[in-house]
């Protein structure tokens, strides 16, 4: 069934099924962390998650119908935002902690060992607290994640060729489906019409904070790489270079 013919319920069901499995860092933690060991753990985990993220994106109804260039651009623009929203979701029931994976959980204070990361940890914890206040639901979370992916590149390019225009139109229709799905998910919560409108506004406004933290995180990772604190390789290197060149 094409996504345009799916009910919001079916669409959400498909993106719930696309959710990546829980991922483990599977490293022996030598605490206390050094600046280098913490950065290596964070980047190793990110690299593993990125591979699963590509698989997740391909399972979002309609994503693989976009041009390959659009698929690449969308992923390279939003990958850190997606990782951060996933982190917030895992951490939402653990105030003051960041649950990077079931075997890699950090307190705010543990960020002290990496220069400049406390500021980012605090932003991540603040956004997570906001999701906690809003009692974010799983259905809403999966819609927001798909929205981040599909919205990431919208204001960066303007289509020129017929193929680009076709892909852009498909992308806009796909965003419509995701917005419909989020509206439907909110409508199931037993709120008044006004409360539903406000909730939609509050949830989508949080996306601008996530973009902001992601930009900060990208700058931080680039600095750590430049100073040789951390060795960045494979897919993560490709994504990082894409954002810094």
């Amino acid at each position: 069934v094409h996504h345009s013919a799916m009910s919001p319920e079916e669409f959400i069901s498909r993106i719930m099924e696309a959710e990546p499995p829980e991922i483990y860092l599977m490293e022996d933690m030598n605490k206390p962390f050094t600046e280098s060991s913490m950065m290596m753990s964070l980047t190793n985990l990110a690299d593993k998650e990125l591979v699963l993220m590509i698989s997740w994106a391909k399972k979002i109804p309609g994503f693989v119908e976009l041009s390959l260039a659009d698929q690449i651009h969308l992923l390279k623009c939003c990958w850190l935002e997606i990782l951060m929203l996933g982190l917030m979701w895992r951490s939402v029931d653990h105030p003051g902690k960041l649950i990077f994976s079931p075997d890699f959980k950090l307190n705010r204070e543990e960020g002290q060992c990496v220069e400049g990361i406390m500021e980012i940890f605090d932003m991540l914890l603040a956004a997570t607290s906001r999701f906690r206040e809003l009692k974010l639901q799983r259905e809403e979370y999966v819609c927001l994640k798909a929205m981040i992916l599909l919205n990431s590149y919208l204001c960066t390019n303007s289509p020129e060729t017929a193929e680009e225009l076709e892909s852009r139109n498909k992308l806009l229709r796909l965003l419509d489906s995701v917005i419909d799905a989020l509206v439907w998910a909110i409508s199931k919560l037993g709120l008044t019409t006004q409360q539903q409108t406000l909730r939609l506004g509050h949830l989508t406004m949080l996306l601008s904070h996530i973009r902001h933290v992601s930009n900060k995180g990208m700058d931080h990772l680039s600095t750590m790489k430049r100073k040789n604190v951390v060795l960045v390789y494979d897919l993560l290197l490709e994504m990082l270079d894409a954002n810094t060149t």
Partner: peptide, 24 residues
């Protein structure tokens, strides 16, 4: 540099029908 060359791994993962979990 073409998009394909600049994003070799990403391009491969997007085009590959093999589960990325296997590649990881």
């Amino acid at each position: 540099t073409s998009l394909k060359e600049k994003h070799k791994i990403l391009h491969q993962l997007l085009q590959n029908s093999t589960s990325p979990v296997d590649l990881a």
